[in-house]
Design a protein around this nucleic acid. Structure first.
Length: 874
RNA sequence: GCCCGGAUGGCGGAAUCGGUAGACGCGGGGGCCUCAAAAGCCCUUGCCCUUCGGGGCGUGCGGGUUCGAGUCCCGCUCCGGGCACCA
C-alpha cells in the first residue's frame, strides 16, 4: 500500500537514534524521580510473537509517557534463558543449548528493537550468563545457611524407560511419558526444597495491600489455601497389624486434621493415606492382601492419574485395614480404611470421615456401605447427599442446638480441654521443590562428602559452571550425572574425594530476583547493592501474562522477603511489585495462539509492511488491554486502517503545514502544498491566516485541550483503546477544520468565497503539536519524525514535557439537555451547563415536542437533573 | 464440582457516578477525483414501520427495584479462564 511517508526508513532511523542518544538509559544518581516499569522477562524462543508485541507495546507506552512526565524511568530488558526447550533441541539436533539459546536471543532482541520499544540495554541480563549463575548460587547458599533451603525425600515422576525424572507437564494425561510412552511411576528421591511455607502467612496477608488484579490475588489466596482447624488423636482399638500392640506402651493413636470438629459425632469411619506410616501396623492379616494391592496401585499411579477425573466424583478406591478407632465424641468404634482420596502431603495424612457433611466421604461411604449420621440439620427440601452448609447441630450430644459456627468453637475447646488435640492452621501451599535433573539450568552449588556430608561450595569458588563437553542422549540420565569430570570432585572441607550435586535449579529461581539484579547489574561483589536496589524498587508497574499469576509471582514475592531476611537486601520493601497488570491472551479460532498450536501470525510480516507503529496502534486500539484479542480474518484490515490513520496524521501535521523536509525553515514558510486533502495534489492553497483567532479557532483550541485531557486520563487508567479513539476523533476535527477553511477561504475554489475564514496558523500549530505529543508514547516513530519536520533537525518529541490541559478550556460551553417524557427521549436542547433546576424544568415544559406528547395531561411529577436531563412523568 | 470473568449493530469495541445506547475503527452502500485503478476526500450505515414530519423496538433469557437500568438486585442460559479429592 502506498504510504504518506517512508515507514521502514523512518522507523529504522529512530530506533538507531534512541539507542545512539542514550535516551532511555537511567542511573541511580539521576535527579529526576525514579520509576521502575518492567515487562516480565521472556523465555527466548525466537522472534517476538504477538503476545510479546502486546506486552512490550504496553510497557513501552508507559516508559515513554512516564519519561515525558519528567521521571527517570528504569526500563531494563533481559532473557529467561535457561529452560527445557533448548535442552530438548540439543537432544534432537545435537546443537549445544548455549549456541541454540544465544541464536534465539539474537532473534528476539532484534524483533523487540524493531518494535520501537526502548530499554536500557546496558542492563541486559541473561540467566545463563556465568555472572548471573554465580549470584544465583550465592543466594542459594545464603538460603541454605539460613535454613530456608533444605534437602528431603520427595516423590517425583519417574520414567522407567528414560531412567529420569519428568516435570509434571512432561507426563501426559493418561500417566505416560510424553517421549517414551512408558507408564510414569512415583519414586522418592532426595531433592532440594525452599521453605516457602515459612512465609505462607505473610504471603497471604500482604496480598491485601497490593494494587494487583483481584483475580490474581484470589488465585494466590487459593493456592496458599490457608485453613483453620484442629488436629487430634483417635485411639486405635482392637487388632493392630500382625502384632498385638495393646500390651505395649499404650494403644497407638491416629492423628487426624479437620476443619469441621463440629461434625465429630458424625464420624462413622476413619481413613489413612496409602503412604501413611501406620498402615502396616493397622492392617490385620485378613486384610493385608487388599491393602497391599491398593498401596501398590497408589504408588504406581502418578499424582496426575490419582487426582484426575478417573478418581474424582467416581467410586472412591479404598480398603478396610481390619482395625478400628474410637470416636472420642460418641465413644463408638469406627473402622479404619486406607484410601487414595486421602493425601499424605496434607494435614496428617489421615482423616475422620463424616459422610453426612462431606461429599467425598459421602461417596466413599455409599460405595463401601458405611453408616451416615447427620449432625447438621439440612434445610427443608434438601435432597442431596452431604450437606456442607450451615445450620443447627443435631445428633451431637453437647453440641446439639448450636449453630455450626458456634459448635466448631465449642468442639475445639472440648478437644483441647480433653487433651487429645490442638488447634492447627494448615496450608495447601507446599515447600518449593527446586531440584531439576537437567543440564540447561543453574547448577546447585553443593558437594556431597563421605565424611563431611552436605558441603556448600565456598563463595570464592563460584560460579559452579556445567561443562560444555557433555553428551545429550535421548532417554539417558542428566548429562551432568554422566560427566565424571564434573561429578567427581574433592570436598572443600576435608579435600577427600566427593561428588557434586548434579541437579540444576528450577528456572523459576532465576526469575525470582532478576528484577533486583536489573537495578545493579554491574555489581561483581554481590547480587545487587541493597542501597541501589532501594532507589528503584519496588517495581512501580509490572506487566505480564496471566499465566504467571501464581507460581512466578508467588516465588518472586517469597524471594524478596527471604533475601531481606538473610541479609542480602537490607532495607528493601518486602513486596517487589507494587502494581501488576496482566494482559489478555491472543486467541485464534477460540484457542490460544501459540507455537505448539501452529497458529502463529508472526509480527515480522507487519513490521515489514505497515510498520511497527501501525502494529502497536492496533494492539492499543483493538480493545481493553486486559481482554483477550481475537485474531480474525478482519484483523489485517484493522491493522491497515491503523496505518491509514498514521498517514492521515502525517498529512495533517507535516504536509498540510508545508513542512515536508526536516531542514524546512520556521513555521511561517508557505511553500506550495502537496497537502493531500482535496484530491488535487500540488495545488497551492493560501489557507493560512495569522490574524486574531476567530470563534472557530477558539473552538479548535478547546477541542485540543479536551483531547489532551481525555488522552491523559485514559492513559492513566489503562484505557488505551479509548485514548487512541480520542486521537482519531481529534484527527477528524483537524480535517474538518481544514476543509471548512478550504471552502470559505479566498482561494478555496469549491466553496462560497468571501467568508475569509482561513485556517489560523498559530492555533492549528498548537493542535498539530498536541496530537504528536500524545501520540509520542503510542506511535513513537511517526511522532518523532513528524515532530522533527515541524520543529527542525534535532528536535525531539520524546524530550518534550507531557502536555497539560487548561481546565478552563476543557470546560464545555454548552451541553445537551435531554428531555424525556415517561423515560422516553422527546427533545434535546443546548443549554448553558450552569442551568438551574427551575430553568431546566421551564425549558422542558415549554418544549413543543413535549407539549405534543403530553397533550392536555398534567405532569404528575418532574425529575430534573440539570444540566443533563429532565424527565417529565405524566 | 467449586471459584472468578464475560455476553452491546455484520465485526472489534464505547458509554468513567443509575441519566442521550452504539464514541472510535473495520466492513457495507452512495458520491467526488481519475482514461482507469489504488490512495485520498465527502455523505451514509442498529432493526422494523413511515404519508419522510416522524413512530415503534433494541444491550444473552425471565423477573424485580427506580421517574429512569447496558449499568443495581434475584433466578437462568451460553461462552471463557483458574482450581480440582487440600479433609
Amino acid at each position: 500500500m502506498a504510504r504518506a511517508y517512508d515507514v521502514q526508513a523512518v522507523e529504522k532511523k529512530w530506533q538507531h537514534l534512541w539507542s545512539d542518544e542514550h535516551t532511555y538509559e537511567v542511573d541511580a544518581d539521576d535527579p529526576r524521580p525514579p520509576k521502575y516499569v518492567l515487562c516480565m522477562y521472556p523465555y527466548p524462543s525466537g522472534p517476538a510473537h504477538q503476545g510479546h508485541v502486546r506486552n512490550y507495546t504496553f510497557g513501552d507506552l508507559l516508559v515513554r509517557h512516564q519519561t515525558m512526565k519528567g521521571n527517570a524511568v528504569l526500563s531494563p530488558f533481559g532473557f529467561d534463558s535457561f529452560g527445557l526447550p533448548a535442552e530438548n533441541a540439543a537432544i534432537r539436533t545435537g546443537e549445544h543449548p548455549r549456541s541454540f539459546t544465544d541464536a534465539r536471543i539474537a532473534e528476539l532482541k532484534e524483533s523487540v528493537i524493531a518494535l520501537g520499544a526502548v530499554y536500557d540495554w546496558r542492563r541486559e541480563l541473561r540467566s545463563h550468563d556465568p555472572s548471573y549463575i554465580r549470584f544465583n548460587q550465592v543466594i542459594f547458599l545464603h538460603l541454605l545457611e539460613a535454613g530456608l533451603a533444605y534437602r528431603a525425600k520427595a516423590p517425583v515422576n519417574w520414567c522407567p524407560g528414560c531412567q529420569t525424572v519428568l516435570a509434571n507437564e512432561q507426563v501426559l494425561a493418561d500417566g505416560t511419558c510424553e517421549r517414551s510412552g512408558d507408564l510414569v511411576t512415583r519414586r522418592d528421591l532426595e531433592q532440594w526444597f525452599f521453605r516457602i511455607t515459612a512465609y505462607a502467612d505473610e504471603l497471604l496477608e500482604s496480598l491485601d495491600d497490593l494494587e494487583w488484579p483481584e483475580r490474581v490475588k484470589t488465585m494466590q489466596r487459593n493456592w496458599i489455601g490457608r485453613s483453620e482447624g484442629v488436629e487430634f488423636d483417635l485411639k486405635v482399638v482392637g487388632t493392630t497389624g500382625g502384632r498385638d500392640d495393646s500390651a505395649g506402651s499404650g494403644a497407638p493413636v491416629l492423628r487426624v486434621f479437620t476443619t469441621r470438629p463440629d461434625t465429630g459425632f458424625g464420624v462413622t469411619y476413619a481413613v489413612v493415606a496409602p503412604e501413611h506410616p501406620l498402615v502396616d501396623l493397622l492392617t490385620t492379616p485378613a486384610h493385608r492382601k487388599a491393602v497391599d494391592e491398593l498401596r501398590a496401585r497408589a504408588a504406581l499411579a502418578s499424582e496426575i492419574e490419582r487426582t484426575s477425573s478417573e478418581g474424582a466424583g467416581l467410586a472412591k478406591r479404598g480398603a478396610f485395614t481390619g482395625s478400628y478407632a474410637r470416636n472420642p465424641f460418641s465413644g463408638e468404634d469406627v473402622p479404619i480404611y486406607v484410601a487414595d482420596y486421602v493425601l499424605m502431603g496434607y494435614g496428617t495424612g489421615a482423616i475422620m470421615a463424616v459422610p453426612a457433611e462431606d461429599e467425598r466421604d459421602f461417596a466413599f461411604a455409599q460405595e463401601h456401605g458405611l453408616p451416615i449420621i447427620r449432625t447438621t440439620d439440612p434445610p427443608d427440601g434438601f435432597e442431596g447427599g452431604a450437606w456442607t452448609g450451615g445450620g443447627v447441630k443435631i445428633n451431637s450430644g453437647f453440641l446439639d442446638g448450636l449453630d455450626v459456627v458456634d459448635a466448631k468453637d465449642r468442639a475445639m475447646e472440648w478437644i483441647e480441654a480433653e487433651g487429645i488435640g490442638v488447634r492447627k492452621v494448615n496450608y495447601r501451599l507446599r515447600d518449593w521443590l527446586v531440584s531439576r535433573q537437567r543440564y540447561w539450568g543453574c547448577p546447585i552449588p553443593v558437594v556431597y562428602c563421605q565424611s563431611c556430608g552436605i558441603v556448600p561450595v565456598p563463595e570464592d569458588q563460584l560460579p559452579v559452571l556445567a561443562p560444555d563437553d557433555v553428551e545429550f542422549l535421548p532417554g539417558g540420565e542428566s548429562p551432568l550425572a554422566r560427566h565424571t569430570g564434573f561429578r567427581n570432585t574433592t570436598c572443600p572441607k576435608c579435600a577427600e574425594p566427593a561428588v557434586r550435586d548434579c541437579d540444576t535449579m528450577d528456572t523459576f529461581v532465576d526469575s525470582s530476583w532478576y528484577f533486583l539484579r536489573f537495578c545493579d547489574p554491574w555489581n561483581d561483589r554481590q547480587p545487587f547493592d541493597p542501597a541501589v536496589a532501594r532507589h528503584f524498587m519496588p517495581v512501580d508497574q509490572y506487566i505480564g501474562g496471566i499465566e504467571h499469576a501464581i507460581l512466578h509471582l508467588l516465588y518472586a514475592r517469597f524471594f524478596t522477603k527471604a533475601l531481606i531476611d538473610v541479609g542480602l537486601a537490607e532495607g528493601l520493601g518486602r513486596e517487589p511489585f507494587r502494581r501488576l497488570f496482566t494482559q489478555g491472551m491472543i486467541r485464534m479460532d477460540g484457542t490460544k495462539m501459540s507455537k505448539s498450536k501452529g497458529n502463529l501470525v508472526a509480527p515480522a510480516k507487519y513490521l515489514d509492511t505497515v510498520g511497527a507503529d501501525a502494529l502497536r496502534l492496533f494492539h492499543l486500539f483493538v480493545g481493553p488491554p486486559a481482554d483477550d484479542v481475537d485474531w480474525s480474518s478482519q484483523t489485517d484490515e484493522v491493522i491497515e486502517g491503523c496505518g491509514h490513520f498514521l498517514d492521515r496524521v502525517w498529512r495533517l501535521t507535516v504536509e498540510v503545514s508545508g513542512l515536508s523536509r526536516p531542514e524546512a525553515p520556521d513555521g511561517k514558510a508557505e511553500p506550495a502544498l502537496d497537502h493531500g486533502l482535496s484530491g488535487r495534489p500540488n495545488e497551492a492553497l493560501p489557507i493560512w491566516s495569522y490574524d486574531q483567532p476567530a470563534a472557530r479557532d477558539v473552538d479548535l483550541l478547546r477541542e485540543t485541550h479536551r483531547m489532551v485531557d481525555k488522552v491523559t486520563r485514559d492513559l492513566e487508567r489503562w484505557s488505551f483503546n479509548t485514548a487512541v479513539a480520542a486521537c482519531m476523533a481529534f484527527a477528524n476535527t483537524l480535517q474538518r477544520y481544514l476543509r471548512d477553511s478550504e471552502r470559505t477561504g479566498p482561494g478555496g475554489g469549491n466553496g462560497p468565497s468571501g467568508g475569509g475564514e482561513r485556517a489560523h496558523r498559530p492555533t492549528y500549530d498548537q493542535a498539530a503539536d498536541a496530537l504528536l505529543l500524545v501520540l509520542a508514547p503510542m506511535t513513537p516513530h511517526l511522532a518523532a519524525e513528524a515532530w522533527e519536520h515541524r520543529h527542525g533537525a534535532g528536535a525531539r518529541v520524546h524530550a518534550q514535557p507531557w502536555p497539560t490541559a487548561d481546565p478552563e478550556l476543557v470546560r464545555v460551553q454548552t451541553t445537551t439537555l435531554v428531555i424525556q417524557v415517561n423515560g422516553k427521549v422527546r427533545d434535546r436542547i443546548e443549554v448553558d451547563p450552569s442551568i438551574t433546576e427551575a430553568g431546566a424544568v421551564e425549558l422542558a415544559l415549554a418544549s413543543p415536542k413535549v407539549m405534543a406528547v403530553l397533550g392536555s395531561a398534567k405532569p404528575s411529577r418532574v425529575v430534573a437533573r440539570p444540566p443533563r436531563l429532565v424527565n417529565v412523568v405524566g
